Simulated assay, not measured.
Amino acid sequence: MRIEGESVRVCGIDVIADAKGKLISVRYEQRRRDGEQQTRKREIYDNGNSAVILPYDPERKTVLLTRQLRLPIFLQDGTERTVEACAGKLDGEEAERRIVKEMQEELGYKVSHVERLFELYVSPAAIMEKVVLFTCKYSTANKVSGGGGLKDEGEDIEVVETTLEQAAAMVATAEIVDVKTVVLIQYLRDRVRL
């Protein structure tokens, strides 16, 4: 595989692990801004692109969140259940279609329209994942089930409905530590104030 840009040339890619995601080692040459050529090597994790949504009820000023086990956070901090926005891997599916399905599976709410906000990279120095961020309006009329996720996928999700202001307070007290959720809460808070 040969990948080249103006100042970067990939020399080789080796797969280190390939299970749920792929861990690769990339050897590349980079021409620095001072003109010097530099050879480098990096490990990159590719677990696929994803979508995330923060539904908002403008009448009650509430948002829907999830609470579930996130093993890396448990291993790092000992926190067993983390509060975050509803999210899921795209697995080749269109982001809008996938996030509507995730919202119904995880939160138990069915909506027909979502608003695409923007796309962000999770941690661009080492992770290839790009996340599409969404919001949508919801109400109690959209509730079709108790949510909870798909048991056969190992999901055990608690639905958390709280006010947008309380969600912002949960960020301030470090109850919410997921970066994509923090971005969505701040974005929506700023937008609602307009």
Rank of each mutant, 00 (worst) to 15 (best):
R2W: 00
R2G: 06
I3L: 15
E4A: 00
G5A: 12
G5L: 07
G5I: 06
S7V: 07
V8H: 00
V10Q: 14
C11I: 04
G12W: 00
I13M: 13
V15N: 14
I16T: 04
A17C: 14
A19N: 13
A19H: 13
G21H: 13
K22Y: 08
K22M: 13
I24N: 06
R32M: 05
G35W: 15
G35T: 11
R40V: 00
R40Y: 01
R42A: 06
Y45W: 10
Y45C: 04
D46W: 09
D46N: 08
N47H: 13
G48Y: 07
N49D: 15
S50D: 01
A51V: 03
V52E: 04
V52P: 01
I53N: 01
Y56N: 10
P58K: 09
E59G: 09
T62I: 09
V63C: 11
L65W: 07
L65P: 05
L65I: 04
L65F: 06
T66Q: 12
R67M: 08
R67P: 03
L69D: 08
L69H: 13
L69R: 10
R70G: 05
L71N: 11
I73K: 14
L75Y: 09
Q76G: 07
D77T: 10
T82Y: 05
V83T: 11
A87G: 08
A87I: 02
K89R: 12
L90M: 01
G92Y: 09
E96P: 04
R97M: 07
K101Q: 15
K101A: 11
E105V: 02
E106M: 00
G108C: 04
Y109I: 05
V111A: 01
S112Q: 13
H113C: 10
R116N: 06
L117H: 08
E119A: 12
L120M: 10
Y121I: 02
A125L: 11
I127N: 03
M128P: 03
E129F: 03
V131H: 14
T135Y: 00
C136E: 09
T140V: 08
T140R: 12
G146N: 12
G148Q: 02
G148H: 13
G148V: 07
G148L: 03
D152K: 14
D156V: 04
I157H: 01
E158F: 10
E158A: 09
V159I: 14
V159D: 01
V159C: 02
V160G: 09
E165G: 14
Q166Y: 09
A168H: 02
M170I: 05
V171K: 13
A172K: 15
A172F: 07
I176F: 07
V177R: 15
D178I: 10
D178N: 14
V179G: 08
T181R: 02
T181W: 05
V182N: 07
V182G: 11
V182D: 06
V183M: 04
L184Q: 07
Q186M: 06
Y187D: 03
L188Q: 02
R189S: 12
D190F: 02
V192Q: 09
R193F: 05
L194C: 12
